[in-house]
Amino acid sequence: MDQIETGSGSVLREYGSEQNLLSKPDGSATFLQGDTSVLAGVYGPAEVKVNKEIYDRATLEVVVQPKVGMSSVRERAREQCVRETCEAVLLSTLHPRSSLTLILQVVHDDGSLLSCCLNAACMALMDAGLPMGRLFCGVTCAIDSDSQIITDPTAQQERESRALMTFAIDSKERNVLMSSTKGSFSVKELQQCIALSQKASEKIFQFYRDSVKRRYSKIL
């Protein structure tokens, strides 16, 4: 587990990840942000149902499974955010008329769940060896009642915030691939949160590299 300093006064919680945990999926990974934990599994490319077939690219399905109970509107919203991000980076035209399935199992939610889902998804896609134009990561920011910005907030900090934002950042240009926002905030605050997320993404991408390096150094 590594604690990540963003360099802007904000500290991300301790991060941890492990790839290739499951035997059945073509790629898998677990990702931890503090006490928030998500397990991801990727299946495919595989045969696709005719009614879902796309002639020039792969069909991507994302399923978010809550820790307990049935999926709700919140899971559907997270699925859409993760799917949009993955579709922006996957070179799906290399696998036309096929199916890709990404399943995200919430193990524990202590805040910043969507960003943890995004990070678990990216690590699982890498483990599956799927072609991607670039990597991505998720960063969540909360704005508290004193207008202070908190990166990677806990569930308690989220409840006490007046605004919550999650961004998917790409590894090449640090562009925002996807954003999910809730609450009231100004344009300036939005720009500040994006800038903080871009800064934090540099550390997360370095964490990706270190994690993969550690894994393959053990194999070799």
Score class of each variant (00 low, 15 high):
M1E: 13
M1G: 14
D2A: 12
D2N: 10
Q3Y: 15
E5N: 13
E5L: 13
T6Y: 05
G9P: 06
S10A: 15
L22P: 07
K24G: 04
D26G: 03
A29D: 04
T36C: 10
V38D: 02
A40P: 04
A40Y: 03
G41Y: 01
Y43E: 11
Y43I: 07
G44Y: 04
E47A: 13
V48K: 10
I54T: 13
Y55K: 14
T59C: 15
T59W: 15
V62S: 06
V64I: 05
Q65D: 02
P66Y: 01
P66R: 00
V68G: 00
S71K: 04
E75Y: 00
A77T: 11
Q80N: 10
Q80E: 11
Q80V: 08
V82K: 01
V82G: 02
T85A: 08
V89K: 01
L91D: 10
S92W: 13
L94I: 07
P96H: 12
S98Y: 09
S99L: 15
V107Y: 00
H108A: 12
D109V: 03
L113W: 03
S115V: 07
N119A: 11
N119V: 09
A124T: 00
M126P: 00
A128W: 00
G129D: 03
M132S: 00
R134K: 10
L135H: 01
F136E: 00
T140Q: 05
D144V: 13
S145P: 14
I150A: 09
P153N: 11
T154C: 08
T154W: 08
Q156C: 09
R162D: 09
T166L: 02
F167P: 06
D170T: 03
N175I: 05
M178E: 08
K182F: 08
K182V: 11
F185N: 05
F185S: 09
K188T: 15
Q192N: 14
A195N: 11
K199W: 02
A200D: 06
K203M: 12
F205P: 02
F205H: 01
F207L: 10
R209N: 06
D210E: 13
D210C: 08
V212K: 12
K213Y: 10
R214V: 09
Y216F: 15
K218Q: 15
I219K: 15
I219Y: 14
